[in-house]
Design a protein around this nucleic acid. Structure first.
Lengths: 98, 98
DNA sequence: TTATTTAACTTTGAATTACAAAGTACTTTA
DNA sequence: TAAAGTACTTTGTAATTCAAAGTTAAATAA
């Protein structure tokens, strides 16, 4: 009698944010440009989704230099990892009708 | 090098539509009111999501009488089943980084 | 018989979200 | 010096979501 969709995380309603998370869960650290190329997004669109994820503290940003060129990389946080896994679990349970 | 989110179905970006599909994939036929109660939605909200799913031909509607009372039930179509499974497969592949 | 209730919508309107495109600041390479 | 790359931010439009109210038709209660 309990609502199956309640345990699903609203933040992961988006294909793009799911994509970012699943890239970051297997790769320690990924750059803005790599994400942009992998997901085939415009700068603005990617930046805004990354921002949503960062607001939620699901990922953290690291600004560094490669030589003298700035390079921004994104990494998943512990909370992000947990939330993403919880979402996937909820999804699986829902689908299997548990 | 191919975009992992490409295979995800935009229609299933919504928690509610995922919920409807996962209910209908295990239950032959479910009534409007049962869905409404299970998912805790308002009439209008449920109706509009069901409409989106019906437009996509992922589910079909059956209007019948229980006694003299009308009863609308929803069933998944073959296309709906395939599309939902394809989406879940794509999700799984994406997550596992295949 | 009149009123209320239930089912299953549709319509309306507001709020949120998504997105492309353009702009920005800074750096590097030609 | 000019063009191009990185990583954004801003702007504006379009699409989406949702609650609330309205609708139609039948059922039941007063």
């Amino acid at each position: 009698m309990n609502n199956p969709i309640e345990a699903l995380n609203k933040i992961f309603d988006s294909r793009i944010r799911l994509g970012v998370m699943s890239i970051l869960i297997v790769n320690k650290s990924v750059s803005f440009n790599e994400l942009k190329q992998m997901l085939e997004l415009t700068d603005g669109n990617l930046a805004s989704h990354l921002n949503t994820l960062e607001q939620a503290e699901y990922l953290k940003i690291q600004k560094a230099f490669i030589g003298k060129k700035t390079n921004t990389t994104y990494m998943i946080t512990e909370l992000g990892k947990q939330s993403f896994k919880a979402h996937l679990d909820a999804l699986e349970k829902m689908i299997k009708g548990i």
